[in-house]
Amino acid sequence: MLFLALLAAVADFDLRAYERPRVVSAAEVALAHAPRTLTSVRNPRSAGGPHDFSSEGDYWWPDPQKPGGPYVRRDGLTNPDNFVAHRTLMFGLARDVGALAAAWDLTHDERFAAAAVRHLRTWFVDPATRMTPNLLYAQAIQGVATGRGIGIIDTLHLAEVALGIEALRESQSLTREDDAALTQWFRDYLHWMRTHPYGLEEAKQENNHGTCWVLQAAAFARLTGDAAVLAECRARFRRDLLTQMAADGSFLRELARTKPYGYAIFNLDVMTATAVVLSTPDDDLMRATLPDGRGLLRAVGWLAPFLADKSRWPKAPDVMYWNDWPIRQPALLFGALASGNAEWLATWRRLPADSAVEEVQRNFPVRYPTLWLRRPGAAR
């Protein structure tokens, strides 16, 4: 009887009603934010132009043995002097568009939709301020590389933006012309991800980078209606993502890092988000398993006790940001809804909904879960 009661607790949970006050409050704040794109800040060390996204590798530092020479890597330790302004601006875009699109979806208040469209038009359509649809100059390293394939992880937050555009297609504020222009931008970026050597290299990574590539490709393909890429991503999910998992549901490559707790959370969050984007009525990837039983519910089951009580974590604390995790991790929510596990849902509900720490924001791809779980209406 207790088990049935726990199942009922999840089945009766109304996520849209639960999230509405938080989302509307965030959207009201976002209404006051003017659009600001990466053209407003220039990285003087970037090889790119004013419309090109730029960032520098977090864990790369000056070499004390070779002053002025190529930077050297210190895993897990973020260099505060590296350029991250474009990344911060993209966080702002994702935060505001996500809140505004989610609030429109929950209320149908066109103020929210109109404001979201202004941000989207400024970032992806207006020739004076739009971002170039590639990432040639992301995760650069001074004296080593002007850009790298792993930089594609920097656009992870555009996945939620793409889902927001899907929702806004049902609003009055997103015109057919703007919709077409936005869709073309994401189509161009997806093409670059799938054809440029940086994208091809990143797609092959057998860790959180490969996971983030698949999530982005899936979200952009869904927005652009690319059935072939969606099918490819579903195949990659089973072949390349679930196979990252150990038999117990952990991710050994993430646990080998100097921030294993944060990396384990991040990879599972992104993987469950990918499953949600790619699932169909006939293929529920949250419940999918490999022949040996590995699957996302096993992975959530492995990590959930450490999210509920971090003192149980079996490894050393992360070298940075240990005190800032966990927050309301989407793997708990998506796992609870897929399995009926009321304990996971209860843990998700009691954790903070967001964080003021930029490193946490950077590794938190699902701010507005109602956008991920909504069912789009008929195409316009």
Rank of each mutant, 00 (worst) to 15 (best):
L106I: 09
D75Y: 10
P127F: 15
P44M: 08
A219L: 01
L241D: 01
H209G: 04
F3L: 14
K204C: 11
D283C: 10
P365D: 13
T195F: 09
W313N: 08
R222Q: 04
C212G: 08
R298V: 05
G76L: 07
Y18E: 15
V366F: 01
Y137E: 10
N43M: 14
L337N: 02
P133T: 12
S250N: 08
P50S: 15
R350G: 05
A378K: 14
A336V: 08
R349A: 07
D282N: 09
P197N: 05
A8R: 15
Y189P: 01
I265P: 09
V276C: 02
A288Y: 09
D75L: 10
L106W: 03
L136F: 02
Y198D: 10
T175D: 06
E254P: 03
A180P: 10
F83N: 11
Y137C: 09
P67D: 08
L4P: 00
R375W: 06
A342T: 09
P80A: 09
Y18H: 15
L333G: 01
G199P: 11
A140V: 14
R234C: 11
E19N: 08
M90E: 13
A114E: 14
F83G: 05
R111E: 06
A275F: 10
V144C: 03
N207V: 03
Y321I: 00
P21E: 14
W192G: 04
Q139C: 05
L307S: 06
E201R: 04
V84H: 12
F186A: 03
A379N: 09
R187E: 01
V72H: 10
R253Y: 11
L158E: 03
F112Y: 15
A103E: 03
R20A: 14
L163G: 00
G199C: 14
T274P: 02
D309K: 13
